[in-house]
């Protein structure tokens, strides 16, 4: 198991290196740090001098190595001229809002999709299953911004029971000003509800359908028939024997989807004026803050890789065949 974890982490490092290389190449191609720094009114000779001083004329891989070294040792991902702060600091300030949004959404998806998916697989002809399946088609086909606006109209404007935008009241989680959380105040939680629901409408139907079809497939297998032949109770056959095998593929997809969700918060954050990374990204695009965009890409990629690595390791704990392959 230990060897498997080490291997998986090494893979993650390689993936991060490749991503950073691509991102760095984009920056080299489209950005001009000298212009960002001094503007248009400087002679070409002076530009050349500054570029030399900044190491911009060094060989490509030399510069790349420096970029990686700075990023790893000092956490230096460049500086945002929009906020006039280091990029990493800007992103870290915006990250908690997005992370809490994604966590809340993931929670909603898990709590609803598991029981609903399993139920739809066990009782495909029941009234609730049919309703869930047709409703989930609707959920998949509705764009997020439409769902979000509909939710705001109903809950914030019409019934006036939930707030329509912002994070509401936040408190400092660690007392050092980095993580402002909305999870610990009633007001913060209230503000979280609508954005989480609207973000979850995108993936919830997918997961209900995935769990349902996986479970139905597992129920047809020989080992489930054998479990019946051993005289086990339906509860045990379904929830112990079938459920764990259903979870295997679902966990992998869940990991990827959580990663993707960090990117999908864009629209939701825009509609709900949610001060997260997606909102920040849109601002950076509007103001052409290339340096910040690049840093954002690196951080989102890192989040994606970390989530997937954790999920894969978790998967190894559940699926014994993976573990064997890892130790050999």
């Amino acid at each position: 198991m230990f060897a498997f974890i080490i291997r998986r982490i090494l893979q993650a490092v390689v993936v991060m290196l490749v991503i950073s290389l691509v991102v760095f190449a984009i920056q080299k191609e489209f950005g001009d740090p000298v212009r960002d720094l001094v503007g248009e009114r400087v002679t070409p000779e002076e530009r050349q001098q500054i570029a030399d001083k900044m190491g911009l004329n060094d060989p490509f891989f030399f510069q790349y190595a420096r970029f990686v070294k700075n990023a790893v040792t000092k956490g230096d991902l460049g500086r945002s001229f929009l906020y006039n702060k280091p990029n990493l600091e800007v992103i870290i300030n915006h990250a908690p809002a997005t992370i809490e949004l994604v966590l809340g959404t993931a929670l909603i998806i898990m709590v609803l999709s598991l029981p609903l998916g399993v139920y739809c697989a066990l009782k495909p002809r029941s009234w609730l299953s049919r309703f869930t399946m047709s409703f989930s088609t609707l959920g998949v086909s509705m764009p997020v911004f439409l769902t979000a606006i509909l939710l705001i109209y109903l809950f914030a404007v019409h019934w006036r029971i939930l707030p329509s935008y912002g994070r509401g009241e936040t408190v400092d989680l660690f007392g050092n000003g980095i993580w402002m959380t909305g999870l610990l105040t009633i007001d913060g939680l209230k503000h979280l509800i609508l954005p989480c629901i609207s973000l979850s409408t995108l993936m919830l139907p997918l997961f209900i359908r995935l769990i349902r079809s996986e479970m139905m497939e597992v129920l047809e297998t020989e080992y489930i028939k054998y479990a019946w032949a051993k005289g086990l109770s339906p509860r045990r056959v379904w929830l112990v024997h079938a459920f764990k095998n259903t979870l295997l593929p679902v966990i992998t997809v869940f990991g990827v989807q959580i990663g993707i969700m960090f990117a999908f918060t864009l629209l939701t954050e825009l509609v709900f004026q949610w001060p997260g990374m997606g909102f920040m990204f849109l601002e950076a695009v509007n103001r052409a803050d290339l340096s910040l965009l690049i840093a954002y890409l690196v951080v989102v990629a890192a989040l994606f890789v970390v989530v997937n690595t954790v999920v894969d390791i978790l998967y190894g704990f559940i699926n014994p065949t993976v573990r064997i392959a890892g130790t050999k």
Partner: peptide, 11 residues
């Protein structure tokens, strides 16, 4: 059952 490779639950 017929096929011992499929009869036991793999997990």
């Amino acid at each position: 059952f017929q096929d011992p490779m499929m009869t036991l639950n793999p997990v």
